[in-house]
Design a protein around this nucleic acid. Structure first.
Lengths: 196, 196
DNA sequence: ACAGATAAAAATGTATACAAAAATACTTTT
DNA sequence: AAAAGTATTTTTGTATACATTTTTATCTGT
C-alpha cells in the first residue's frame, strides 16, 4: 500500500520472513490472503509479485466505484442521520492535516465515504466497495502528488455533506457520481500519458 | 459451493484435514483464501464458518452483477467477434444437458457470459465480475430448483446472442440488464418469503 | 553462438511438533 | 438457580524439518 515493496519482482517467502522476523507460515498466510484480494498476482509458477500500476486497472476501479458507490449511497440516503454526517465531517477535519501518509489519507478518505454508506445496511455491497477503495490506495500517490487534487477533493466532500443536509437526494447522487468519475478520469488520463 | 458442508457451524481445521487427507497447513491455506474471497466468515474469535444464505446478499450480488456486467458488456460489444458468439453458443448447448450438477451449471453459465465479456479486454473489471458470479453459485439451487428458471434463462441467452449478431448494441445492453435484474428479483423475492 | 538437454540450486508445498489463544466445563459464590 | 471466576480442554497460530516443484546454471551438440 505504501510502496515500500517493489512492484514487478517476485516476493520471496524467505526474504519476507526475515524482514518481518517471523517464520514462513504467517508469511504464506498473508500472501494467500493478499492474493485473493488482488494485491498480489502470480509470478510465473513460483512466487507472487506486486502487480505494476496500469491505467486500465485504475480506470476500472473508478468506474466500478462510481457505479457501486452510487448504488450504495442511494440505498443509504434516506437513512442517513445527523450523527452520520457529523462523523463524516470529523474525518474531513482529520484529512485537513498536512503531515499524513498517503495510506493514512486513503484510509480517512474511505472512512469518510463509509460513514455515509453505513446507513444503507448492506454488508455485501459495502464489503465489495471497501475492497475497491482499498485497492485504489495504490494509485493515491498520483492523485495527491502530481495532480494536486487535495483541496479540490476536500471542497467536494464538504459540498456533498451540505447536499445531504439539505435532503436533496438526486443532486447528492449526481454530485457523488461526478466526484468519483472526475477523480477517475483525471487519474487514468495522467497514467496513460506516463507509461513508465 | 455444492452445499456439501453445513452453513453456520464452525469448520474445524482438524476435521477438514482428516476429511481431505492432508495436514492442517493446506487446509489453513484454503481457509484463508476462501475467507478473503467471501466464501467464509469468522465464527467468533476462533474458527470460520460458511455464512448463511440471506436475501440481502443475493440481492446485492445481483444488483452489482447488473451494473458491472452491463458496463463490461458495453466495453466488449464492439469487439465481439463471430468466434466469441460461437464459443458462447457452445456453452449454451452444454447447458442443455439434463444431468449437470448445480456447480457445473453455474460454471457453464459463467463461461457463457464470460465468453462475451472477454472481448472487452478489461482484466480488473472482469475479475471482480467473475467473483460475483462465483459467489452467486451458492444461490443457484433456488433458481434452478423451486423457481423453474432453467428454460427461461436458456431462451434469454439465445435471444441475447441474436441481438449481438444483429449488432443492436443498445437493445443487447438493455436485454442483458433485464436478464440479470429479473433473475435477481425472482431470487431475492423467493428468499424473503422463505426466512428459513 | 545458439538451442536443447541435464544437473544443481533455490523456491514453494506439506507434515509434524509445540506455543498461544479461545472455548468449554466446572467450581464457587451470591 | 444464576453469575462470576477458575481450571481444563479444545482449537488455532507459529516454528522447524523435509518433500516436491520450479528456476537457474551448466553442459553438450550442432
Amino acid at each position: 500500500m505504501n510502496g515500500e515493496l517493489p512492484r514487478g519482482v517476485p516476493l520471496r517467502q524467505a526474504e519476507l520472513s526475515a524482514r518481518y522476523g517471523v517464520s514462513r507460515i504467517p508469511v504464506r498466510d498473508a500472501l494467500l490472503s493478499l492474493r485473493a484480494e488482488g494485491w498480489l498476482v502470480a509470478h510465473g509458477k513460483a512466487g507472487v509479485m506486486i502487480p505494476d500500476l496500469n491505467w486500465k486497472e485504475a480506470e476500472d476501479l473508478y468506474l466500478m466505484r462510481a457505479e457501486l458507490e452510487c448504488l450504495l449511497f442511494e440505498m443509504a440516503f434516506d437513512n442517513i442521520q445527523e450523527e452520520n454526517v457529523k462523523e463524516a465531517r470529523g474525518f474531513l477535519i482529520d484529512l485537513d492535516h498536512e503531515n499524513l501518509t498517503l495510506v493514512g489519507r486513503g484510509e480517512l478518505n474511505w472512512q469518510f465515504h463509509n460513514a455515509l454508506y453505513q446507513a444503507a445496511n448492506r454488508p455485501t455491497l459495502q464489503r465489495v466497495v471497501e475492497g475497491l477503495n482499498k485497492q485504489a490506495v495504490r494509485y493515491l500517490g498520483f492523485q495527491y502528488g502530481p495532480l494536486g487534487y487535495r483541496s479540490k477533493s476536500q471542497n467536494q466532500h464538504e459540498a456533498l455533506l451540505r447536499l445531504i443536509e439539505s435532503k436533496n437526494k438526486q443532486a447528492a447522487l449526481d454530485y457523488l457520481r461526478q466526484h468519483i468519475e472526475q477523480a477517475g478520469k483525471l487519474l487514468s488520463q495522467y497514467l496513460k500519458n506516463i507509461p513508465a
